[in-house]
Amino acid sequence: MVIFARFKSFWLGTLSFAVLLVLWESLVRLGWINPFLTSSPTDIAVHFVRQTQSGELSVNLGVSLLEFALGFGGAVVAGILMGILMGWYRLLEYTLEPFVWFLYSAPLIAFYPLFVIWLGLGAPTVIAITFLFSYAPILVNTASGVKTVDKELLRAAISFGARRSDLFFKVVLPASVPMVMAGLRLGVGRALLGVVVAELFGATAGLGYSINYYGALMQTTDMFVSLVVILVLGVGFTQGVAMLEHRFDSWRVGHEQ
């Protein structure tokens, strides 16, 4: 029954996607909506192939992925390290917490022009924005993972003679892995948002740049090519990290596959 239900929901989901695409295509073909504004699935596919063959897509994708990797990679390293320190040293936590929550909840894009003044227009600013967007969720989750380690486990370790470094390496670190993974899942989406938005505002290459560029030329179909790629990246990254999280998480929830 469960398998049947899952099977059914998979097909219903696929069906709804297909219906959406067919509807879109037909409305354009029937002349009910203007393809200049909405493009159409077949046009997008044709332009996708053209952009791929010309190498344009791979250049833009490459630039965006590199900026993403540097910004998000930096946020992962810095966020985990700082999160561990903040979770472990309470004074540091209290000192930095207002700034961290500010980073977490403020619309940081407002500082984009300031970054342009500091770093110039282009890749460095995009990387900085990407870093800033994804840093806080990783840090906050890591810190709370370190802080909320089960006291009974710490007590057991101390009872068996753990030193402070043992507590850290053998209890606190492994115990906080699931929370760190949850932070990465939140961070990865925000990092991608950071790359795309920063590229929209000012860049010379990248998927966001491409949307902005074709937008200015009113070439809807080419805009949609980049949008589709961004959609796929968003789903792929998030699901990828979610799967990774699930693997590391199995012991925490206590569910069997």
Binding site: D150, E152, L153, R155, A156, K170, V171, P174, A175, V177, W251, R252, G254
Partner: peptide
């Protein structure tokens, strides 16, 4: 030996 076992789940 602890009441709630206190085993390291990982």
């Amino acid at each position: 030996v602890f009441q709630e076992f206190a085993l390291m789940p990982w």
